[in-house]
């Protein structure tokens, strides 16, 4: 037995070498981008790959001010915060009703919401765009908030329904649930009880909204969110890599921060999605 154990250990040690190389390939682009962002344009042309000896923040201020990233950043924050709050409120209300309350058509409504997972925005691009024009929601931040809520909602409703359905029923048997205080039960019981699921959904939906480019491209025209701004920056400044790199750093920073702080919740959220399927 002992021999088998040590042999297995040795195999694992050897295999960790290619794994470490693969990990380096995930770290290198991060190094390259930060390093390039800290170089002057001239410094980058002279030496693209070497570690910068004379770091400068001029690219960051240029990207932030001249390239309007500050404006795009504000748009992204407003839209992401708005959409995440809307998603959590709408999903928690729906989850409460679908998991706890009894009413006719409950199953059909649940299935309808889930089936819409099969309708990504690409499938309805033309009519969705026309719907947004018809409702006067084009090129407005509230319009984009509504669009995000509509397209990221099904998974949130599914998770909240599943979460509430697993809570012990005694919790609600004690509370009188009739028309008069339904809203109070939701506010005072369901929202606090749902906190673990709401935190997970809040983080995942923040990632989806912040990172989106297609829906934002479609809905906003004169305004831009950060990711559309970065895509445009990529097109405009193909030769000014340090400026582009600085923009990338600014756009990715909030997500990197969220990943570092909430790694556990993100990992759990994905595991729940998989195991509950």
């Amino acid at each position: 037995m002992a021999a088998v154990q040590t042999r297995e250990k040795r195999i694992l040690w050897i295999l960790s070498i290619p794994m470490a190389l693969l990990a380096l390939s995930a770290v290198y682009p991060v190094y390259f981008t930060i390093n390039a962002a800290l170089k002057t344009r001239k410094g980058y042309v002279l030496d693209r790959f070497g570690l910068t000896t004379d770091p400068t923040f001029v690219n960051f201020s240029q990207a932030w001010n001249q390239s309007r990233l500050s404006e795009y950043f504000t748009n992204s924050v407003v839209v992401t915060v708005g959409a995440v709050i809307a998603l959590l409120v709408v999903a928690s209300m729906a989850g409460f009703a679908l998991a706890i309350l009894r009413f006719r058509g409950r199953k059909i409504i649940f299935i309808t919401i889930l089936v819409s997972l099969m309708i990504p925005v690409q499938v309805v691009l033309v009519p969705f765009y026309r719907t947004m024009i018809g409702l006067n929601l084009i090129d407005s931040r509230p319009g984009l908030i509504i669009a995000y809520t509509a397209f990221f909602l099904p998974f949130s409703v599914y998770l909240m329904t599943a979460f509430y359905a697993r809570l012990p029923r005694e919790l609600f048997e004690a509370a009188q649930i009739d028309g008069a205080n339904l809203l109070r039960v939701w506010w005072h019981i369901m929202l606090p009880m749902g906190k673990p699921a709401l935190v997970t959904l809040g983080i995942l939906n923040t990632l989806y909204c912040w990172n989106d480019v297609l829906i934002s491209l479609l809905v906003l025209q004169d305004q831009r969110t950060l990711m559309v701004g970065i895509a445009a920056l990529r097109g405009e400044y193909t030769t000014n890599v340090p400026l582009l790199a600085a923009g990338i750093c600014l756009a990715a920073a909030p997500i990197v921060l969220i990943y570092v702080i909430f790694q556990r919740q993100i990992v759990n959220g994905i595991a729940v999605g998989a195991v509950k399927g």
């Binding site: 409120v89 709408v90 999903a91 209300m93 729906a94 409460f96 009703a97 679908l98 309350l101 009894r102 009413f103 006719r104 409504i109 309808t112 919401i113 819409s116 309708i119 499938v123 309805v124 033309v126 009519p127 969705f128 026309r130 719907t131 509504i146 669009a147 809520t149 509509a150 397209f151 909602l153 099904p154 409703v157 649930i177 009739d178 028309g179 008069a180 339904l182 809203l183 939701w186």
Partner: peptide
């Protein structure tokens, strides 16, 4: 009846969003 009617109000926002922005556009498309 009152509770049942109010239950619909709780699923209405979710259902309306999905129907207006995804299901009707699908049929329209």
């Amino acid at each position: 009846h009152n509770a049942e009617r109010l239950a619909y109000l709780f699923v209405l926002p979710a259902l309306a969003l999905v129907v207006v922005f995804r299901i009707i556009p699908l049929i329209w498309g």
